[in-house]
């Protein structure tokens, strides 16, 4: 009556049907017969700890029906390794599946396990890049890409240029900015300096400044600059001339970016006798340039410790 129950190759297995937990289960799913049957055979296989080619086929069937089934993925990986299956073949199959189920999460963890075992990442960079064509901010794909870079030491294999390309495509792609930060600073633990190296820092400041010029209200490069200052030991004040092109107290009606005004407030607050001016910049944010965050700007003003900060 079913694909498995009619198959002599499975005749030795007694399927374990779904236990619904009683006659009135909550949110019970009316499974298709095919899904119900396949799951029943998987349960039986798992209970017997069976790792075999037929179990691999079974997991493939299930993944086709429900790619978000983490148990099936984990069991499949286990099975592949247990029977020394051809991992290149697995990767080919995975490529198709990944393109069909772009947002699926388990695929990427599975892929990681396979590549790690294969100990090769040939063609992987291109594959991942194709995934970004549909959604350039996919969290799981970016996290996978970070793993690739680290596992296969791809730090200097065009990875920086790759982030540049994606940022060029969409300067507001914060995931690409985050990846850039990773590529530059991801080896601190191994003693490879990132933005603490003055030459790299200078290059990255330039890079972010050019990006700000393209779209001053895009927060990504501003955060990047702030990150450089915070982690790279660079005083924010060194950015003052740059920031004042976008926000300055002298031209209170010409502010081109709320992020610039925010940074200006921070720069001023660090100056001798600059706190009053910093307070004025925060007032501009609260009242005119970013009123939705009025409470936050007032909080920041309170932190300045200005004398009698009343109202």
């Amino acid at each position: 009556m079913g694909k498995y129950s009619d198959d002599p190759a499975w005749a030795d297995v007694t399927p374990l049907p779904t236990d619904e937990g009683g006659p009135n289960p909550l949110a019970a799913i009316a499974y298709s017969e095919e899904y119900e049957e396949t799951m029943s055979y998987l349960r039986a296989a798992m209970a017997a700890n069976e790792f075999s080619p037929r179990v691999l086929d079974l997991t493939e069937d299930l993944i086709d029906m429900n790619p978000a089934h983490y148990t099936v993925w984990l069991y499949r990986a286990h099975c592949l390794f247990a029977i020394n299956s051809d991992l290149k073949e697995e990767l080919d199959w995975l490529n198709e599946t990944a393109l069909q189920h772009q947002k699926n999460y388990q695929i990427w963890h599975h892929r990681m396990l396979i590549l790690d075992k294969l100990d090769s990442c040939e063609g992987e960079g291109e594959f991942v890049e194709r995934m970004f064509e549909k959604d350039a901010k996919n969290y799981h794909v970016w996290s996978y890409r970070q793993w690739l870079v680290k596992r296969f030491a791809l730090w200097e294999n065009g990875e920086l240029e790759f982030t540049e390309k994606l940022i060029e495509k969409d300067v507001r792609n914060n995931s690409a900015w985050n990846h850039r930060w990773y590529v530059i600073n991801g080896r601190e633990g191994e003693g490879v300096r990132g933005i603490t190296d003055p030459r790299i820092r200078e290059r990255e400041v330039d890079f972010a400044e050019v990006a700000v010029a393209k779209a001053p209200q895009n927060q990504s490069p501003w955060s990047y600059l702030r990150g450089i200052a915070r982690k790279g030991g660079m005083p924010l004040s060194s950015l003052k001339d740059f920031v004042s092109q976008y926000a300055s107290l002298e031209q209170p009606d010409e502010v081109r970016s709320s992020h610039a005004l925010d940074m200006m407030a921070e720069i001023l607050a660090e100056e001798d006798n600059g706190k009053q001016q910093a307070g004025a910049a925060l007032d501009m944010l609260a009242q005119k340039y970013d009123p939705i965050r009025k409470n936050y700007w007032e909080y920041r003003k309170g932190m300045l410790g200005l004398p009698s900060a009343a109202a």
Binding site: L26, A27, A28, I29, A30, Y31, S32, Y35, M39, M65, N66, P67, A68, H69, Y70, T71
Partner: peptide, 24 residues
């Protein structure tokens, strides 16, 4: 209504039904 019997298309959430219990 999310706790009623769900049609077969909901198979794709077969691994996350506990969330439905919590959210509801």
């Amino acid at each position: 209504a999310q706790l009623e019997r769900l049609p077969a298309q909901y198979q794709v959430i077969d691994a996350s039904r506990p969330w439905l219990f919590y959210w509801t």
